[in-house]
């Protein structure tokens, strides 16, 4: 079933973000550009969790694979952004495929633990392979004449990169909206709700779950690639467990069951953090308390408000009738 309201809300937020960026100066434009790259990560978690039934605590590792792919590929392909982002999607998809094959047979909680182990293991591997990843110090993006289909683009936290990220995200969201009204998506939902029943009905549940998880990996990888272009420096922290946990928090605040919630969660948490940092260094503590509040009173996230409001309206209508 297509969530047209969700699509409109998320596209409106993206549009507002881009319009706002033209008014609020270079620093905030950079903040928003980074937020857009993380929106891909939040969406990828939602997709993995809610549609592939894999509660992946290793999405940042997949995101990092995309980021490092861009860092490594930039000199070889002379700043061709389209090829770099393609490389990041392939890298993200490949890592997700490996992770998916390893954790797919596990139970829901087993898969969560499995992905935690994978995230930690890859983080340690990344730290050990300093020549390849730069370890904790990270690697800078090579200085190239970056271009997209011949149009020069300046890498960095700027309006150009924000627009590029926003356009790609809008295409992704619109694409999801289109697919979600197709028959194939009903099968995905059927597999997600009861894999055994779908299997009995003749659908290859494993293949569907793997395919969705790989797609979520491609999305995370694409976000990572954009992040590398915006930040121009990627360190191993990017692929760490704490980054994965952030992606879960973003998804939870936006609404874990709707991929349209991810962008809202990223903006809410990151902008709140950015503003709070002006007054206190205990931002993480405050964000933590906010999340507890969300978990208690808004378990379906911001997107869940629509259902709640709809329920209230119908209750009021029913009460009036009686």
């Amino acid at each position: 079933m297509r969530d047209t309201v969700g699509l409109i809300v998320s596209l409106s937020i993206l549009l507002a973000t881009c319009l706002l960026a033209t008014l609020i100066g270079e620093f905030w434009t950079g903040v928003l550009a980074r937020c857009v790259t993380w929106m891909f990560l939040a969406i990828s978690f939602t997709l993995a969790y809610s549609y592939a039934n894999i509660p992946s605590v290793a999405q940042a590792t997949v995101f990092g694979a995309g980021a490092y792919a861009v860092i490594w590929a930039a000199p070889a392909i002379a700043g061709n952004i389209a090829l770099m982002l393609l490389a990041s999607m392939i890298a993200g998809g490949a890592v997700a495929l490996v992770f998916g094959l390893l954790v797919l047979r596990m139970s829901h909680s087993g898969a969560a633990i499995g992905t935690i182990i994978l995230a930690v293991a890859f983080s340690m591997l990344g730290n050990a392979a300093i020549g390849l990843t730069g370890g904790t110090d990270g690697l800078p993006l090579a200085s190239e004449a970056f271009h997209l289909f011949g149009i020069p683009i300046t890498a960095g936290p700027n309006i150009g990169m924000l627009l590029l990220g926003a356009v790609l995200l809008a295409i992704l969201l619109a694409g999801f909206w289109y697919i979600s009204g197709r028959r194939i998506w009903r099968i995905v939902r059927a597999v997600q709700q009861n894999a055994l029943r779908a299997q009995v009905l003749g659908y290859n549940a494993v293949a569907y779950r793997i395919a969705i998880y790989v797609i979520s990996g491609c999305i995370a990888g694409l976000g990572g690639g954009l992040y590398a272009l915006v930040s121009r420096h990627v360190a191993i922290e990017t692929i760490g467990l704490s980054m994965s946990l952030k992606s879960i928090l973003w998804a939870a605040v936006g609404g874990i069951s709707s991929i349209y919630g991810g962008p809202i969660g990223v903006l809410a948490i990151q902008l709140a953090s950015e503003v709070l940092l002006r007054w206190t260094v205990r931002v993480d503590l405050i964000i933590g308390l906010m999340l507890v509040a969300v978990a208690l009173w808004l378990p379906q996230g911001v997107m869940g408000l629509r259902t709640r409001n709809a329920n209230w309206i119908s209750t009021i209508k029913q009460w009036r009738r009686t």
Binding site: G25, E26, E237, V281
Partner: peptide
Amino acid sequence: TVDTKSDVDTGVNQLRKLILE
């Protein structure tokens, strides 16, 4: 004074805040 949180991403972002804001 800004806090880097001992983290590259935050550190660079906070430097940009110092310079631009």
